[in-house]
Design a binder for these strands. Structure first.
Lengths: 250, 250
DNA sequence: GCCAGTTTCAATCAAAATCTGTCAAATAAA
DNA sequence: TTTATTTGACAGATTTTGATTGAAACTGGC
């Protein structure tokens, strides 16, 4: 086994298992501890993995692609995604924002006859060869790391689109409304909201009560919100008072 | 075993196995280490594989399945791509059409500080995480199989773009001009030509003399054409008479 | 808390593997 | 034939590897 192959194997093992011990890697690839340590150090240095005592874990920051980030898709996110996807009627046109939760929603759409519009490169890659799905890609400045298209081109393209539902992710939710991490993103998402009849926010409950850099919109602009069981009764009441229909995924 | 055959075998082994050690290649093809090394060096130089210590690995950037057609990226296409990429000045903004040859051009751009605009999903995937490259994605209806964004949204987005050079692929070239296989594609490419100061067609010589379903434009609209050595003197004269600067890749 | 025992880590070094460059022999082309 | 290209072999430089060592971190009992 050559150097590259070994490192590739190690990386793949870590990506699929989430965590591996140094000892198990020694057995797996048949090299010495020193060599594996050096490989882990290298992979850590280039940001592919995070070293921990006794082994290494996945960082969720793959160099080559954005997709296949199944590891980050927790059971909660998948549950939320299933409920959200259940809202969609056959033949409907939906708009999907970028984000790990919306990526899970997209995964649930495979095999259904739908029109999907998205500015997310991972979602495009996921759905690109699905014959039942008609895929419209929103272009723009491609934001590194996350792989979403943003900026004037995206806004302009979105203004020419009309869909039944938007599935949107957020960076944080407070009584003041929705937040996200980046102003370009917020600008694009505002246009998304204008292009959809109904705005559905998909999120996990950890976002509730946290804000972020850029304010997106007040709560009243949201029609539905799908969230995992972790939501408190208080928050549920706050959201419902703002006119949001809250769906809890179980 | 003759040179070409040996290199072909090596390439095939690497493509199917992903990684291969120098030693195993020595056994496989029955040549000396030196010879295999030289072959690997050559295949690396033309971008078919990546040489690594102890052997070589496949240029592993196939994510979505479109670029399985990479097998079609012949030495001619690579040579053409290298010449085409050589035209680009540092910091320039270039527009890349979809296609296997333009994908090879994109591959040549890795590591250079450029603005790249494209409607091709394979190219976006290839360049998405290259830190030096600022990537603008053109959205639209995502054409299945080839992974290019077309249609009104693409045309509209392109109309807002201005670049120095367009690298365009074609389905066929005759005295009547350029052709492509699909009317949606041709419509989008016409707008691309309007958005660029200079139109560079990249093609292999087999396209000369063949037409296709949809007429794109007359020869006079093209400024430069990069083609492999297979071009005849006749064709060269025809193209130059139409005002095209012909570059032959060797 | 503290300590002893165990595991893991970083640093170092010599051996092994691999690479580069060169050169002459073998082969193909002119 | 002569010339150019390809091939295999070899020497010296470079990189990688595995073993070893002492230091650091963790564990469980007190």
């Amino acid at each position: 086994m050559i150097l590259d192959e070994r490192r590739h194997n190690i990386l793949q093992t870590i990506e699929t298992q989430g965590f591996v011990s140094l000892q198990s890697l020694v057995e797996l690839v048949g090299a010495s501890e020193s060599t594996i340590r050096r490989d882990l150090e290298y992979l850590d240095r280039i940001g592919q993995i995070r070293r921990t005592r006794g082994g290494a874990s996945f960082t969720g920051d793959s160099l080559t692609g954005f997709d296949e980030r199944r590891g980050q898709a927790t059971a909660e996110k998948q549950a939320v995604a299933r409920v959200a996807a259940g809202l969609i009627q056959p033949g409907e046109a939906v708009l999907l924002d970028g984000g790990t939760t919306t990526l899970e929603v997209a995964r649930q759409l495979i095999g259904r006859a739908l029109h999907v519009v998205t500015n997310s490169l991972p979602i495009v890659n996921l759905l690109a060869n699905q014959p039942e799905i008609e895929l419209i890609q929103i272009g723009g400045y491609l934001f590194p790391k996350t792989g979403v298209a943003l900026g004037p081109l995206a806004v302009s393209a979105l203004s020419q689109i009309h869909v039944r539902r938007l599935f949107m992710s957020v960076g944080g939710i407070t009584e003041q409304g929705l937040f996200n991490t980046n102003t370009l993103l917020v600008e694009t998402e505002r246009q998304m909201m204008l292009s959809a009849e109904e705005v559905v926010v998909v999120t996990d409950s950890s976002k509730l009560g946290h804000s972020a850099l850029a304010h997106l919109c007040p709560l009243q602009k949201v029609h539905q919100l799908v969230v995992d069981q972790g939501i408190t009764d208080e928050w549920r009441k706050t959201l419902e008072d703002a006119g949001i229909k809250v769906l809890v995924a179980s």
